[in-house]
Design a protein around this nucleic acid. Structure first.
Lengths: 168, 168
DNA sequence: GGGGTTTGTTTAGCATCCTAATAATATACG
DNA sequence: CGTATATTATTAGGATGCTAAACAAACCCC
């Protein structure tokens, strides 16, 4: 069929404006991304979310910080504290992170990588470059940069929307 | 810091190539998107996934098809059949869809919108245009089209990767 | 025509994510 | 000082997603 634009109002396809197309392509791309990444992470015995925590801890460590509190992880990973609790629970059960106490604050707990955790991160990172290149091989470097720029702009806008939403 | 590329191997930041940046921006944009959309859908008493099913059914209906099987929904929404079962269960409990039997095939079940479901879809669609515009207001129409084009290209590539992955 | 394979759906079990509510500690302020 | 508020983490309960496995029905092919 592939109806021309005037036909839109009549029948069903109310989703052909640039904004609708863009939105759907983000959702679709992310869905496909998850499907490709899941088996990849599974090879290392972890999930994508768990990798998010491990990578964040590794970066923080490389920056000289002494572990991250659950709240810090929540902020950086864009997930709520109760979700962090669950992921960290399972990582702790795997023996790749531990919960320390924070000197000046009895409420807080600091999550740090164990030796086993650092080894796992190193193993994943070794495979990570090629994997990321494979996934984005559909776009050349210039297109990847364009995509990053456009999504960065969108991300800033969404952060603005969110802060208004939460202030309300 | 912003280390130059040679420094990457040394310390921590192994994620500054265009591909890494692009990948992270997709994940981040999607995360923010979910946070903005969730309260929006909640206003209608549904979730984003449920809207995915409803919208797909509505489009199929507008195209003159007589409902969709769970497998069809699985294909179009990029989620596995067991997940479709769950979402459809809840939609059925809400009274907005029903499971019919398919004439020529005793295995299959066809999902169709109820009158209540059609009313709900109409109500959401009425608010949908402005909402989508608001969300993508950070980008002008040209940028939205660029984003769609880039993600479309990426999506095609990912579908290729996936079919190889599944064939294996 | 009948045995083996494929297809459509569901069940079971696990990992994420969410919101709302709880508990404990820190901080602020009158 | 001592109460009120804010912060940190967890628990409880619901919704999505996945894989693996079960079941029935349809199909294929000799």
């Amino acid at each position: 069929m592939k109806a021309q634009s005037p036909a839109d109002a009549a029948g069903g396809q109310a989703g052909e404006r640039p904004a609708d197309l863009a939105l759907r392509s983000i959702v679709r791309a992310f869905g496909l991304l998850e499907r490709v990444m899941q088996p990849y992470f599974a090879r290392f015995g972890i999930t994508g979310s768990q990798w998010g925590v491990l990578r964040t801890l590794q970066r923080s460590e490389a920056a000289g910080e002494a572990g991250l509190r659950l709240t810090d992880l929540s902020d950086r990973l864009l997930i709520r504290p109760p979700s962090v609790t669950g992921v960290v629970d399972r990582l702790e059960r795997l023996g790749v992170v531990v919960r320390d106490s924070v000197p000046g604050d009895l409420r807080a707990k600091r999550v740090t990588l164990t030796r086993k955790g650092r080894e796992l991160v190193a193993r994943v990172l070794a495979a990570h470059g090629p994997q990321v290149e494979t996934i984005l091989a559909g776009l050349d470097a210039g297109e990847q940069a364009d995509l990053h720029r456009l999504l960065g702009k969108l991300t800033n806008h969404l952060e603005g929307l969110l802060s208004k939403q939460e202030a309300k």
